[in-house]
Computed example of a mutant assay.
Amino acid sequence: MDLDAYVLAHAHEWQRLEDLVRRRRLSGAESDELVELYQRVATHLSVLRTSAPDGATIAYLSSLLAKARYRTVGARVGSWRGVARFFTDRFPAALYRLRWWWLGCLVANAVVIAVMMIWLVQHPAVEQSLLSPAEVDQLVNEDFEGYYSEYAAGNFAAQVWINNAWVAALCVALGILGFPVVYLLFQNIANLAIIGSIMHRHDHGQHFWGLLLPHGLLELTAVFVAGGVGLRLFWSWVEPRGLTRTQSIAREGRTAGTVALGLVAVLLVSGIIEGFVTPSGLPTWARLAIGVLAEVLFFAYVFVLGRQAVLRGSTGDVDAALLEDRVAMQE
């Protein structure tokens, strides 16, 4: 194909579509023309991608089509109904569809934590190589509990939320590489196992779990969800399952983005619990009950709401109307 000739032949249609997109108001006839030109230019884009893949022209047409698409569906996309639909359909569907990945990640990490803690408790020499007796005493008697009450509850909740959201985002963003996710998760659980073993050896095990579990159940679940989804993204190019690797990575990448956004809300809840419930004067059983309730509600959200969303046909991917334009081409 002669790219210059093709551009010259259709440039007036592209310019007309751009003019219509820029107008604040359109008449009925102009709206119909916008839809018709949108379909034509989508065909032009498909032809260029197939026969004359020029990067600059393809980028221009993709941008133009995105603007035109927004003119036709933008009001719906930006509505509060779309936000509600994200949390009642798209996010829970993504969690449910990828449940075996993050549940496997959760179970594997729980087992590793348990094994590490038991081993560390039985090998006190490791503790002595990491911390001096004075540092151990400071950790057991002051630092561990003081960590949760050192700052104002609101500021502490915000700090914890941002930090955990960042860890979850890293797990998702680096998921395509595989190994960094494993490294991030191991760092997380190694620190937990070391501190837990020290607290247990010095007869503060109940204190440790009483402060950790109220917020830690939901917080660690969210981190393991991010880890599992990140590993699924890595597997999407190892085993694309009937799709091209590009299509597989694109689909799982969009779903991973859905999960990452949703986890911001989940981690906000755990951050509020950590900032206001964990250091509160409530009895231990009450703080634990709040943590268990938050965890049960999360699993109900996934396995009730998420299952229903999947049965309705949702996958956690973005709406079909927002995906790239695809036009059937004759061979």
Rank of each mutant, 00 (worst) to 15 (best):
N109W: 00
V111T: 08
L131Y: 06
D89I: 13
L131W: 10
I118P: 03
A75N: 15
Q122N: 13
L139N: 05
V121C: 04
E142P: 02
V140N: 06
C171K: 04
Q128E: 10
G146E: 14
W119R: 00
A110C: 03
D143V: 15
F156T: 08
V140Q: 08
R97F: 02
W102Y: 06
E135C: 04
Q159A: 03
Y147D: 11
I118Y: 11
A110S: 05
Q138G: 01
A158E: 06
C171L: 07
F91H: 08
L170S: 04
V172S: 05
S79Y: 14
S129R: 06
L106K: 04
W80F: 13
R81P: 11
G154M: 08
A114K: 11
A93P: 04
E150M: 12
Y96E: 04
R76P: 12
F144A: 01
L106C: 00
S129H: 10
Q159K: 14
R85T: 15
S132Y: 07
Q159T: 14
T72Y: 05
G154R: 01
N163L: 06
L170Q: 01
L139Q: 00
R85C: 12
L120H: 01
Q128A: 09
Y147T: 12
A153S: 01
L106F: 14
L139M: 14
A125L: 11
A168H: 00
S79V: 14
H123G: 03
L174V: 06
A125Q: 15
S149M: 12
A165L: 02
V73R: 09
P133Q: 05
E145W: 10
S129I: 10
R97L: 15
A108S: 09
G78M: 14
A94T: 12
W119Q: 04
Q159E: 14
T88S: 03
V73Y: 10
L95G: 05
I113E: 01
P92G: 09
I176C: 00
L106Q: 08
G78T: 15
A114W: 06
G104T: 09
R90A: 02
Q128C: 08
M117Y: 03
Y96I: 10
N163H: 12
R85Y: 12
F91C: 07
R71T: 06
A93N: 13
Q159I: 11
V115S: 09
A125K: 12
W161T: 13
R97V: 15
G82Q: 12
M117H: 03
I118S: 11
V167Q: 08
G74D: 03
V107R: 03
F91A: 10
A153H: 11
A165V: 07
E142N: 14
M116S: 01
W101K: 02
R85V: 15
P124C: 07
P124T: 05
L98I: 13
F156M: 06
A108E: 09
P133D: 05
A169R: 01
W101Q: 06
L130N: 10
S129W: 03
I176P: 02
N164D: 01
W166V: 10
D137T: 10
M116K: 07
L139D: 03
L120T: 04
A125E: 11
A165C: 06
N155Q: 12
R81M: 14
C171S: 05
A110G: 05
W166K: 04
Y151V: 09
L120V: 07
V115K: 08
W101G: 00
